[in-house]
Design a protein around this nucleic acid. Structure first.
Lengths: 335, 335
DNA sequence: GTCTTGGCTGTCACCGATGACAGCGCTTGC
DNA sequence: GCAAGCGCTGTCATCGGTGACAGCCAAGAC
């Protein structure tokens, strides 16, 4: 910064004021400083500012992985919003137990970011407590967290509408397929199932437990097994509701492999509106992943800028049923 | 830190030494300091250390988006490798021209990270020059950059093997479909086409320009038009080589919509080995995206730790042909 | 007994910004 | 003509660590 000051013929203080956009700098000086800064490719050393201001200009994001459609979409929504606010994006992808222990032990986000966004991350009570006394703003994304601001969708309501759509098409035997819950923390899965069951109940349909299935190894051979089991039931389902689109894609592949025509024999419904859902013609419940990210940043900014970190504020974004080719009336409908 | 020093009855310097694990601290002192630090739940302020050491403990990544399969996979490879090295991950997703101008104007990565990884980002000469005088280590990922370390795959060779596979199956009329090049910087696209053409040439097949097609609006209606055009040629192709898997997925959808059986009438080959390629049974050229990320981090560490930033080192990772159901012999093959 | 050595610890300048405060030149009011 | 006010800019202490250097003390060499 001293270099810039020297080149522009002013003091470091003026350079600082100019680069921070304070109004108490004359236009001519400002122009000179900006020119000098550009010529020297000068960029603020955040460490130094942080030391004085106590703010880092960085926002940390904690997520269970980086490659899933939902998470990468959410990140895509955050990035431009953060950039616009002049905030940098620090990503902590914590996948396995070892990384997890390490993260909560070292708490690298501490004092290293102005806020921490927790995205789709099922915290144990101990972890939650640890984050709570981090003394930094916490924002929860795609999950409801009591006592902290959060942004999410109403999974239960969305699933309810999904199942209702299938019922309205004439389906009476509707299976619900979910990923095998290794962690015990698949809250959205639970909520979606609850919505599904409620829709059945609302329609006066009985709940057949054999139509709710957890599928282990669903990315491998587990899906074929599940399809075989369902299709060989005494009274097989005419519609399958998959917990996520990704799951539904494998389901479609397994059905194709088993020569089960979709939707002629069974309808398939997903959840997410993954990019590929459109390509594959999958009926699904669209979840605004990008918008969730964007909104989370808005919330974060308001928390940081007003330092009302303790304020509890919950935003629920809408989901939307997107009917496509994978759902239709059941084989014997209308007869 | 002063508090800890006071409580432990030592100087700040000793506290610093203790917490950094330097060996020149006696065991008794170390124990006292550690106890004091724990009691006060002291965490060091990285900004302050950075200011002195000049190292930030952060690595910045510049990529054109966050949601594509390739980029999110590459990130997935980087994250654990960085964490293992105790480095934080700073992500700059620069998509539109406005963000782009802003990024290269403000150069936010400068002095705020120990290295910058440029992933699949087509730089203009001016931008490249700008990064070059950033004075920080630069590592290029999924692209070759003269004068800087880089990690990438040999697109040309991979495409050559892909086309050769089709030729070996008996195909003689092979079309190559690429995304419409808005930017003029689709280097991998160019290299893949070159490999394709070389394979044709090697096999003594003539290159029919009408079989190389850029598809505008390939995510919308453009694909159907392209398929229509190809399939109504005097001598239509029996195999289609799509520049990327994502592209191939849309192509498969368009073919299905046009009732063109795959691979009975036309074979389809992709490039990437996107997760969905397996689900959809797409033959493709696997590109080790996660491994590229991991390797990039290894390279980065070596550059940072040995401060041999100027050293040029190029690593080429292997691609692999993954035959699946979308390719087979041409309709009239063997006759 | 003196000198050297090595282990351990303290002192203090410094990293690069920020912000409080002072100062400068000029206009305005009286 | 002088004081007050305003707009703009410079000076300097400061943030929380690090690292160079000096100092102290006990052990061992001569």
């Amino acid at each position: 910064m001293a270099d810039v000051a020297h080149r522009a013929g002013v003091s470091v203080s003026t350079v600082s004021r100019t680069l921070r956009g304070l109004s108490t700098v004359s236009d001519t000086t400002r122009a000179r400083v900006e020119a000098a800064a550009r010529e020297l490719s000068f960029a603020i050393t955040r460490s130094a500012s942080s030391l004085v201001t106590g703010r880092t200009g960085r926002v940390a994001v904690l997520m269970p992985n980086l490659a899933s459609w939902f998470l990468s979409s959410a990140l895509s929504g955050m990035a431009p919003a953060l950039r616009e606010a002049g905030l940098d994006l620090l990503v902590y992808s914590v996948t396995d137990v070892h990384e997890r222990a390490d993260f909560f032990d070292r708490l690298p986000a501490r004092r290293n970011a102005d806020a921490l966004l927790v995205v789709s991350f099922a915290l144990t009570p101990a972890e939650r407590a640890r984050l709570d006394d981090l003394g930094m703003p916490l924002i929860f994304v795609s999950q409801h967290a009591p006592g902290r601001p959060s942004v999410y969708v109403d999974d239960e309501d969305a699933a309810l509408r999904g199942t209702r759509h299938l019922i309205n098409l004439g389906h009476r035997r509707i299976a619900f397929l979910q990923t095998f819950d290794e962690t015990g923390f698949a809250w959205s899965s639970k909520n979606r199932l609850a919505g599904h069951l409620r829709a059945l109940d609302d329609a006066g349909l009985e709940h057949d437990p054999s139509l709710v299935m957890s599928v282990p190894d669903w990315k491998g051979g587990g899906m074929a097994t599940a399809v075989g089991r369902l299709m060989s039931l005494q009274d097989p389902p005419t519609a399958l509701f998959a917990e996520t689109d990704d799951f539904a894609f494998r389901l479609l592949a397994a059905l194709r492999a088993a020569n089960v025509p979709v939707p002629a024999q069974v309808s398939v419904m997903g959840f997410d509106d993954h990019v590929m859902a459109e390509v594959l013609g999958l009926t699904t419940l669209a979840q605004p992943a990008v918008e969730l990210g964007r909104t989370a940043v808005r919330l974060t900014r308001s928390v940081i800028e007003n330092s009302d970190g303790a304020q509890e504020r919950h935003i629920v974004l809408p989901t939307e049923l997107v009917p496509r080719g994978s759902t239709g009336p059941p084989p014997a409908a209308g007869s």
